[in-house]
Design a protein around this nucleic acid. Sequence first.
DNA 1: GTATAGAGTACACAAAAGGATACCGTGAAT
DNA 2: ATTCACGGTATCCTTTTGTGTACTCTATAC
Lengths: 115, 115
Amino acid sequence: MPRVRHKLLDCSPGCPVEGVLHLIDGKWKGVILYHLLEGTMRFNEIRRRLTSITQRMLTKQLRELEADGLIERTVFAVVPPRVDYCLTPRGRSLEPVIMAMKRWGDEHIMLQAAE
Amino acid sequence: MPRVRHKLLDCSPGCPVEGVLHLIDGKWKGVILYHLLEGTMRFNEIRRRLTSITQRMLTKQLRELEADGLIERTVFAVVPPRVDYCLTPRGRSLEPVIMAMKRWGDEHIMLQAAE
DNA sequence: GTATAGAGTACACAAAAGGATACCGTGAAT
DNA sequence: ATTCACGGTATCCTTTTGTGTACTCTATAC
């Protein structure tokens, strides 16, 4: 079972929100998971969707998601290299959370197009 | 209408997840909103629930949530001072997101009690 | 006369997150 | 002969997050 990187759930007992937040924390993780809901993707495919993420950050976030047991990383020994990423069952179980966020975003964020 | 502090939605169009994440980002904001779902609360009441947050951080997070139009801050001119925090309608509209997180947390996080 | 609660602010500092840029190896295409 | 795609590392830098301590002001309680 995947170990939670979390040191301590320091919210009083009955605060599971904090734990989830730790998993999808930061600017990127939630978005990565959101895109992976569509299916398996390669490194640069993900990168193209998150237009402004740097390579370094993407690598880092993917490794953390992997460490938390939310995604799976598959390396093919070919050249040029190929690495696939997909959700684990645990990762996919976050779908309701991600989709709730998407719905909210769709309804409440007016994309201030040309500012 | 509350202005989003967000500079730019740099995920390709159709990625509302990023916007939401920006609002409840970090270790604290989601948890604060979660507790405020129960009703209006005073500063130290919130603080007692997030046992490990420092006063400085709590102040900062609350101010940001206020700036994003998710919570409302009401100051009473009494002594000792009294300041109430409650969700705005916009803040309350995040309820499905927060509750989805809570449900996931309840199901998937085994609180490793005494480690 | 001293302490306490309440909701902060001010300052110094350490740690973590995030960003910019350059580099790697190799097979295939130009 | 050079360039490109791929999936990264390495190094340096800035910004954000988080910790710790001290301080404020005043009515009330001890």
